[in-house]
Simulated assay, not measured.
Amino acid sequence: MTKKRIAGMVWSATPTPLTQDRRVDVPSVHRLVEHHVKMGVTGLMLAGTCGEGPWLSDRDRETMVRTSAAAAGRRLRIAAQVTDNSAVRTLANIEQVAAWGAEIAVVAQPYFFLNGTADRQLAFYREIARHSPLPVGFYDRGEAGSYVMPETHLAEFLTEPNIVMVKDSSQSPAHRDAFLAARKLRPALVLLDGDEFDCVSYLQAGYDGLLLGGGIFNASLAHRIIRAVRTGDTAGAARLQARMNDLMLRVYGGSGIECWMTGLKELLVQMGIFSTNANLLDYPLTAECRRQIADAVSGADGLGYRADLFEPASANQGTPR
């Protein structure tokens, strides 16, 4: 798989639409795919943290991956999260998602990992990279994961030729430097920032693009941030980042991210993409969060967020307020 094929500007770590009885909602998956295509997204990462992958049943993960891959065709790249507690289990998951239509297997820190020395972490990831039938993406969750790999071992792991992509959600300058150093040695390695509240600094450092949990609704703003950075409009990029952060906080329930998953799915219901805001994590939905979502979708907020939600970046050129 070539860098050109996967290194597009914006990827989406998409949420998974569920019915009220918490099964994958197939019609909503089709709408999800079409919305991402309309917004110029390059690829979908399925069953990640935002996709509730660690909590979905195997049957629902299969439905999500198979339906998304079939609906996308060649229009979107399809990556699937395969993280598990051992290399053996992770490799079995990769065999599954490959059969379901995924093109890239994404692995993060295991959920339960005993004797997690740096050497054992390296051996774990290396075994996966060397035996995976699919190209592998590394999802670095930083301190949010069970163990953090030291930069020395991280650099060694990234020399593996089957590691094609990094989703960097570590919020670690040291890891960012390690990823950039690895890319100098392996120019085909694709670096995607996963910290959607700080896209600008990663793009300025040289990352190839963004892989965002909010990509299903903030892709237009994300594209405009990338364009501003790449044309040297630092002030414009900062204004766009602030605008995107404000929109996300309205959707997620404020600075405490109180409504995160439920707010995100409620937004998608009001946008006509999802049928329900049902999720497996049971985040609350406050009246204030619901109101701010409704105002953004309808345009009643007077801030122009409706255009950011529905119009591709090519059609949304206005100066951020």
Rank of each mutant, 00 (worst) to 15 (best):
N93P: 04
F124K: 10
I94D: 00
R89H: 12
W100M: 02
Y111V: 13
A69E: 01
E127D: 13
R89C: 09
L76G: 05
D84A: 15
D119P: 11
Q109I: 03
A70I: 03
Q96M: 14
D84Q: 11
I78A: 05
I104L: 14
T67F: 00
A71L: 06
A69H: 01
R59P: 05
A99N: 13
A108C: 14
S86N: 05
L91P: 05
A92M: 08
F112R: 13
T83C: 06
S132T: 10
R59N: 14
F113N: 11
R61D: 00
F113L: 10
E62M: 10
L114Y: 15
A70F: 01
E62V: 00
I128S: 05
I94H: 06
I128Q: 02
A80C: 13
A79E: 07
V97F: 00
R61T: 07
L122V: 06
A87R: 01
P133W: 07
A87C: 00
A69C: 06
A98H: 12
P110K: 04
M64D: 03
Q96L: 13
A69V: 02
L122M: 10
V107H: 14
R126N: 06
M64I: 06
E95H: 09
S86P: 02
E95W: 01
P110T: 05
R74N: 14
N93M: 08
I128A: 09
I104E: 10
Q81S: 15
F113I: 06
R74Y: 03
S132G: 12
L76I: 07
E127Y: 03
A80F: 01
G73A: 08
R66P: 01
A129V: 09
P110D: 05
A98N: 09
V106P: 11
S68L: 04
R61V: 03
R66Y: 00
D84E: 14
R74C: 02
V65C: 06
G73N: 06
Y111F: 15
L91I: 07
R126E: 12
A98K: 15
T63L: 11
V106A: 15
R130Q: 14
S86H: 03
T67E: 10
T117V: 12
I94Y: 02
R74W: 01
L114F: 12
A98D: 10
R130K: 13
A108M: 14
F113C: 11
I104G: 10
A129S: 15
R126I: 01
D119K: 15
T90H: 11
W100G: 00
T63S: 08
A98C: 10
